[in-house]
Nucleic acid binder design. Structure first.
Length: 479
RNA sequence: UCCUCAGUAGCUCAGCUGGUUAGAGCAUCUGACUGUUAAUCAGAGGGUCACUGGUUCAAGUCCAGUCUGAGGAGCCA
């Protein structure tokens, strides 16, 4: 019988009254041969367990080492010591799993995030990663709740795909062909007829195109699944395997799309602020301690919790691409030539330093930029009447950059076909996508939100590798 | 992939213009103490100075290459 254990998070809210309970967890510290700080992952707060002096013998006490797993029976009493309201007076202690202190790498002290990344299988046992992953869970749950409450249908789009949806980026090939002896056609190309699917396939880079098929039947759908990009990107905000949320809505124009995206982002932040207060307070403190080493001008203007509250209380700034370029051109930064990449004018693809200037220096809050030049955006975005721009929108947030990319989709068959020709997208692979425009086509819109970037924004973690359990990046697929 | 910086004990780091047996805090081990909060006190063990090659009487320190990591850039979510 193991499931009668009391969860420490719940127990800590009790009024002590000599209740007899069983708790199980892992030792965080053992002080004075008498006091165990026990943690079961439900909260960063530890339960103080008090042992009777001399009752267990020194051999047994040695086994109460950091991260040993214990089952403890005891009574909940008011704590005479400072620092905790209650404690557990142990009546019996059982060691479920030993932890050799000579070999266990974690200590009750600060570790660098780089070091913890190398022991990702153990880093959940730290306060920082405990908080990050409880918040990650809460955000994932809030996302499903938000869409479910709005009547969206959760759609599972394929992981293995034959189409290169956005024409974007390098793909991971999926094959069962023998790598040491790949069957070839007469012209030397790979003979995919002999492959498992009898065609070339890869891991998905987006579920959007399939989600559009769902939206034009169910009205509102969303996907929430893994996404794969084989780009050789080595940055604090890119992963080869990441999770993406892609809502797709029929009868939505860009305005509706932006409204939904802003409401959505605020909803899930609000959920975390309401349900993960303790973890957010811990991470807020962590960031403040971190920034104590930095010079004054490098420190954040707001604490993590202040930043989240600020985002909740203010409208996102909404500007057009054209306005964004004007702001950049007129900025003191540009006039003093502080940008590494000069602002060349309309038609330029904004560099991250430009986006960061708009978000962090100029507006100091999330910004939605819409109506980009069609040349720098994907084929499926709806063309505006000016012949130059498409109804795209990106949402940029301080510290992270682009967190959402979306658009109204081109629902007019002739316009879509013309754009695909211009961009050399083969129509024959996407016949099903075009069919949607042939049979009851409707204005529709959607966006993609990078889940890990969202978790970064809410937790304040600066490296994306620290908000996913086992990060996949170039040269790294351990665990 | 490009640019910049770094790699010294299990962890975090010090080690000056090259010069004897390479240091500290924490952790670990031994002992003391016992209502502690990253407990405290005393002692002990622990190093291929990332790797390979070079310069030099002498290299942790200088040079070259390689590997690994971080920050920035590109690609993007």
């Amino acid at each position: 019988m193991f499931n009668k254990r009391v969860i420490i998070k719940d127990l800590l809210t009790w009024e002590p009254g000599s209740q007899e309970v069983t708790v199980m967890g892992w030792v965080r510290t053992f002080r004075n041969g008498q006091f165990i700080a026990l943690n079961d992952g439900s909260t960063n707060s530890n339960l103080q367990v008090v042992l009777d002096l001399g009752k267990y013998g020194s051999e047994f006490q040695k086994r109460i080492a950091v991260s040993a797993a214990l089952k403890i029976n005891g009574t909940v009493i008011a704590s005479p010591g400072k620092g905790q309201k209650l404690e557990l007076k142990a009546t019996s202690v059982e060691i479920l799993g030993d932890s050799d202190p000579e070999k266990y790498p974690l200590q009750p002290k600060k570790h660098s995030l780089e070091f913890l990344r190398e022991i990702a299988h153990l880093r959940f046992r730290t306060n920082t990663f405990g908080s990050v992953f409880r918040i990650r869970h809460a955000l994932a749950f809030a996302i499903h709740k938000f869409f479910n409450d709005k009547g969206f249908l959760y759609m599972h789009t394929p992981i293995i795909s034959a189409s290169d949806a956005e024409g974007a980026g390098e793909l991971f090939k999926v094959t069962t062909l023998p790598l040491e002896n790949i069957p070839k056609n007469e012209n030397g190309s790979v003979n995919f007829k002999e492959d498992f699917f009898e065609r070339s396939t890869n891991l998905t880079v987006s579920g959007q195109l399939e989600a559009e098929l769902g939206a034009t039947a169910f009205g509102n759908v969303y996907t929430f699944g893994p996404t794969f990009r084989a780009e050789n990107s080595n940055t604090a905000r890119h992963l080869a395997e990441f999770w993406m949320i892609e809502p797709e809505m029929a009868f939505y124009d860009l305005e509706d799309n932006m409204n939904l995206a802003e409401e959505f982002i605020k909803y899930i932040i609000k959920y975390a602020v309401a349900h993960n207060r303790e973890d957010l307070e811990f991470l807020t403190q962590r960031l403040e301690d971190e920034e104590k080493h930095l010079p004054q001008d490098k420190r954040s203007e707001m604490s993590l919790l202040q930043k989240l509250e600020f985002v909740l209380q203010h409208e996102f700034e909404r500007i057009t691409y054209t306005e964004a370029v004007e702001i950049l051109k007129e900025s003191n930064y540009n006039k003093k030539e502080k940008f590494r990449f000069p602002v060349t004018g309309w038609g330029m693809d904004m560099q991250s330093e430009h986006e960061r200037y708009l978000v962090e220096k100029h507006f100091k809050k999330p910004v939605i930029i819409r109506n980009y030049p069609k040349e720098i955006k994907a084929f499926y975005m709806r063309q505006n009447e000016d012949g130059k721009t498409v109804t795209a929108m990106d949402i940029l947030v301080p510290g992270i950059g682009e967190i959402v990319g979306g658009s109204q989709r081109e629902e007019r068959l002739d316009r879509l076909e013309q754009r695909m020709k211009e961009m050399n997208i083969p129509e024959k692979d996407l016949w099903w996508y075009l069919d949607i425009r042939r049979f009851g086509t409707v204005p529709h819109s959607g966006f993609g939100l990078g889940f890990e970037r969202m978790v970064q924004f809410v937790t304040g973690m600066t490296n994306i590798r620290d908000v996913i359990a086992f990060p996949r990046t170039p040269g790294n697929a351990e665990f």
